[in-house]
């Protein structure tokens, strides 16, 4: 088999994660020369992001090699979709919807309030790795605008003055777990 991609410069993520990802990809039964082998690339990337939390070069290269495609193709897909991230996310991933409905109801001010309270800009992660903050486009819950999601939880009709309470909730939860 031709070697398609360079080796990753570093491989830091846990081998258990790769084992889980490989088991998933094995189930896709990819053939090196099958023209439709790329059809399931997005699912595999999705799965990888669930496992690792993000898609750094080493994961992209691993997937590219398993799909027998150049790294550039994987990178192009990862870069195209906002959902995919190449940077690690916080334990609590705060996403503020900036879709039209949320935006006209003041989502930008909600985002600003998160930025002020967490001390990070949108797209960044807090120093302790607890919180990361992002904006996204329309989660399909416009009736609840403005919408904020934190991990799997959805907050509706969020006003800027409610932000402090939300952040506190996670800090308390964190303290209780510790």
């Amino acid at each position: 088999m031709a070697r398609i991609n360079p080796e990753p410069k570093e491989r830091l993520l846990a081998t258990e994660g790769y084992a889980e990802l490989d088991a998933y990809i094995d189930g896709l039964h990819l053939e090196p020369e099958a023209p439709r082998r790329k059809d399931t690339l997005i699912q595999a990337l999705h799965r990888a992001q669930i496992i690792f939390g993000y898609l750094p070069d080493e994961v992209q290269l691993h997937i590219a090699n398993r799909f027998y495609i150049p790294h550039a193709e994987v990178s192009g897909v990862v870069g195209f979709y906002n959902f995919f991230t190449t940077e690690p996310k916080g334990q609590y991933q705060v996403s503020v919807c900036m879709g039209t409905a949320c935006y006209v109801l003041g989502a930008d001010k909600v985002l600003q309030e998160f930025e002020r309270l967490l001390g990070i800009r949108s797209g960044e992660i807090s120093d302790n790795g607890k919180f990361s903050l992002d904006s996204l486009r329309c989660v399909g819950a416009c009736g609840l605008a403005p919408v904020v999601t934190i991990n799997d939880r959805v907050y509706g009709k969020v006003k800027p003055d409610a932000v402090e309470g939300i952040v506190e909730h996670y800090l308390v939860e964190e303290a209780q777990e510790a």
Binding site: D57, Q60, H71, A72, G76, G79, T86
Partner: peptide, 20 residues
Amino acid sequence: TVGVLTANGRGFEAIVGPAG
């Protein structure tokens, strides 16, 4: 069939270049 180049990003920032 070397496959070095791809579109990076989307919208205004989109640029063709190597992965990442």
